[in-house]
Each structure stands twice: as C-alpha cells, then as structure tokens.
Amino acid sequence: MYQLTKKNKDFILESVLTINGLFSAIAVGLIFIFVTRESLPAIHLKGWAFFIDKSWYPLEGQFNVLPMIAGTIFVSLGALILASPLGLFSAIFISFYAHGSLAWPFRRVVELYAGLPSVIFGFWGLMKLVPMLNEIRPPGQSLLAGILILALMIFPIITLNLMANFRPSSKKYYRVALSLGMRKSTYIWSILLPSLKQQIVGAMILALGRAMGETMAVLMVCGNIVKMPTSIFDPIRTLTANIALEMAYAMNEHRSALFFTGLILFLLIFVLISVADFWRRHESWKE
C-alpha cells in the first residue's frame, strides 16, 4: 500500500511538472505563430521593401525597419558594454569586499534596482538625464540617453546572477586559495572568474535580452525619430517603442507591418539565445 502511494506521489509530481513545462513551451510557440500569422499580409505585400523603403512613413505605405533594428541593437549593445563591468564589479564588491554590515544593504539596493518599474527609470531619465545631455548636445533625447538608462536597468541583473554563481564555487576554492597563501585578488581574477566564464556570458545574455525587450524607458528618453543614427547624440526609435507608439491607431497594412517588427524582435532574441547556447556548449565540451 505504502509503495503504491509513493509511486502515485511521484506520478502526480511528474505530471504537474510536465504540464507546466509543456504549457510554457506551447505558449511561446503559439505567440510565435500568432505574430507570424499577423505579419504575413505585410510580408506578402512588401517583401524586401521592409529593408529598402525610403523610411518608416506608414501613411505613405513606406515601412523601412532597418533604422529601428539598428536602434535596438545599438542601444542594447551599448547598454551591455556599460552594464557588464558595472554588474561584475558590483557582484565582486558585495561578495568579497563589503563587510557583513555593508554587504546586506548593498545587496538590497541592487535587488531594489532590479525590481524597479521601467517607467520610473524613464521618468527620471526624461526629467534629469535628457536635460543634462541637451546641454552637452541637443536634443538630449538620444541613443546615449537610452544606453545610460538601460545600463542602469540591466546591471543589477548581471550582479544578482553572478552573486548567485559566486556562492557555491566560492566556498571550496576560496579555502584552497587562502590555504596556499594567495591574496583575495589573485583568487578572484585568476581562479574564480576564469572558472565562471560560461556563467558570466549567461548573465550578460540574460541582461541583453532584457535590454532588447525594454520598451517604456527607451521610449521616454530616446526621441523616437526613425532615422539611422550617425552619432550617439542622435535620437533613435527601437522596435519595441515603434510597436508601443503606433499599435493603438494602426490599421490593415500598417498594423501587419507592426507585427512584422515584433517578429523581427522575436527572431533577434532567438538568434541571440541560440548563439549563446552554441557557445556555451562549445565551451563545456572543451572542459
């Protein structure tokens, strides 16, 4: 009897987990199908014109998405370049250098950062950062403003992720390193970080995905002019901001073209994750 119950418990748990897993996989699949289906009319109608039209003028039937793809990539990569060292150094500081009483508040602040709604970042950016940039080089609402705001938003993701990875690996090797009379800095730079290469890249990819998908904050500080940026002080429009700005009134071809922007975003993130995964597999094979 007891055996049977134990088996049943296992079966129930397994079923619940399987259903959960299937549900999330199917949900993503369905969203992909929906977005693709909705963008098909525009793809049929425009085809390659999405990449060679004059610009994005929905009223004139012009739908060039390249400036927005570029905007999205520049702003996210720029943010990642700033946020990576910031996130890494914060994680190292909190994990190894902040003393007990100092580490706790720092950790909480970083967690707070990660949980802060993006509209607050956007609001602060619009009120404080943009006017400051405007003084350096008008109009202030620019690629640079987007990069700075996004960097602030994504660095805590990197920090928290790395701190979670530092803990288990730390205990074992830290003790060994100290017992060999090594300094903390040698341990961190020559042992810990090289051993966590995959996890560091993983954290960066997660942050990059978040940056690419961010809508509200970039919409508020980037200026939203559809134009290929030639300097970091130029305004840009991202794919996400484009959808958010125009979906409310878009119809027919325009609406379908917006779904196409969504599809591109979907594919960009898919490619990003696949490349990261491929790299990780390659690295773990080497080990």
Partner: peptide
C-alpha cells in the same frame, strides 16, 4: 604576514580539491 604563514605551513585537505585550472 598571514600569506607567508600559510606558505610556511601548508595544508592538504581531506577531499582532493585541485583548482579549476
């Protein structure tokens, strides 16, 4: 100097723990 002490007094732990290098 603590690091000098640990250089002078080496330790081998119960579990073999080579560094991940």
């Amino acid at each position: 100097d603590l690091n000098e002490l640990r250089k002078k007094v080496g330790i081998v732990f119960q579990e073999p723990t080579p560094l991940p290098l």
